[in-house]
Design a protein around this nucleic acid. Sequence first.
DNA 1: GTGGTCTAGACCACG
DNA 2: GTGGTCTAGACCACT
Lengths: 127, 127, 127, 127
Amino acid sequence: MLLKIEFESEIPIYIQLKNSIIDGIAKGELKEGDSLPSVRQLASDIGINLHTVNKAYNLLRDDGFVIMDRRKGAVIGKNSSMLSEEFKEKLGEEIRPVIAESYCRGMTKEEFMSICSKIFDSYCKEK
Amino acid sequence: MLLKIEFESEIPIYIQLKNSIIDGIAKGELKEGDSLPSVRQLASDIGINLHTVNKAYNLLRDDGFVIMDRRKGAVIGKNSSMLSEEFKEKLGEEIRPVIAESYCRGMTKEEFMSICSKIFDSYCKEK
Amino acid sequence: MLLKIEFESEIPIYIQLKNSIIDGIAKGELKEGDSLPSVRQLASDIGINLHTVNKAYNLLRDDGFVIMDRRKGAVIGKNSSMLSEEFKEKLGEEIRPVIAESYCRGMTKEEFMSICSKIFDSYCKEK
Amino acid sequence: MLLKIEFESEIPIYIQLKNSIIDGIAKGELKEGDSLPSVRQLASDIGINLHTVNKAYNLLRDDGFVIMDRRKGAVIGKNSSMLSEEFKEKLGEEIRPVIAESYCRGMTKEEFMSICSKIFDSYCKEK
DNA sequence: GTGGTCTAGACCACG
DNA sequence: GTGGTCTAGACCACT
């Protein structure tokens, strides 16, 4: 699996890293039981700080995507029953301003839905 | 129009403010030509620093939502033809990780689309 | 002569006004001896403050483009021998950063000179 | 590279700073990949506030001259394909009043073009 | 009165 | 140590 980090981006590296791994899980490239590279390994591979990788891993652990094992390091957990009401609320708050801006800029509902649909399909089909 | 700012939020105040105003435009509460409160007025109303308001206004100006009129201060601009390819790209990059996480957490495409649809309708119908 | 003022511009109105009048002189629309509208007249025509017009007129007077006559108001002066070394210096300082940026952005000398040439011709020919 | 700031000038410090850096790029003193001093460093060197430096850096970033690297701070970006139509328009509007005034003051086209030519060459030759 | 500029100092997120 | 955010208060240019 290939990790792309944009150091120029305004998005923090540890968030990009977290998103990349979730993206990998969504695409099926990372499956339950797969182990992630060690913090040190990944940090030196990408050329970033240890703390940065650590922070990403911890976030993934907090969200249930990853389980930290003392021997095996970080392994992908079983992603089930993670669809809490809390997440749905957070989701709504997150996409609301995006939708508002899209609407203001003149995007039709159809176009917006179409874009979402394509992205969603890019995960569903490959699995 | 009522502006809600959550000071405890991790989202910067000036971003919340910007989003609130775009939300107001999307809802039709703010229309082309309407003038916004002065930076000082709004700052004291909300209880924040005027520079924070200023930053939000400048971002809105850069995005074309607001025009700084030398006589009237900040007024809502005409939101037309702002649907650039650049924005669509940014939009895709912004929602992709949100969709990836939703998918990983077990959300179906139908459910996700339904949530988006409701939010979109909350703007469309009131217009 | 038609005066265009952009209230949304970042350029102060009194500067725009001054530039417009100089533009009119350059185009030959305003000639020596022509009288400008009264401060009150022009202010109400454009819909701006008296002080703003006054400021523009005073600048034009300071630069020798206009002479303030107690009876006739502001009249266009004779624009000759105003090519001081001081002005040439100021000119150089003013266009240097413009040229630097143009060059950095990849504009060739030919293209830049061509643009200048066309603008210059727009004044020369009409006279 | 030496930065000259005139505190008595009517031109805002952050604009002078921005122009100085673009000037440095044009002269070839600053090349792609070179990193700029940190905002704090530069601010204390020049003797101004760090926010003023920050504003200049952010403008340069918005214009594509500089990239904010999360690890290395501000670095000079690749200045290519920045010659948009938008810039050409802005350029024309910016130099038009300068040319108009020069013409009114009796400057010949040849003299004006000669001044521009010399300034342009001062950048070209050193590259 | 408006926004724009500059200063000063604080805290935080990031790496 | 980096830039980002926020506050506070000052002065100025513009209208």
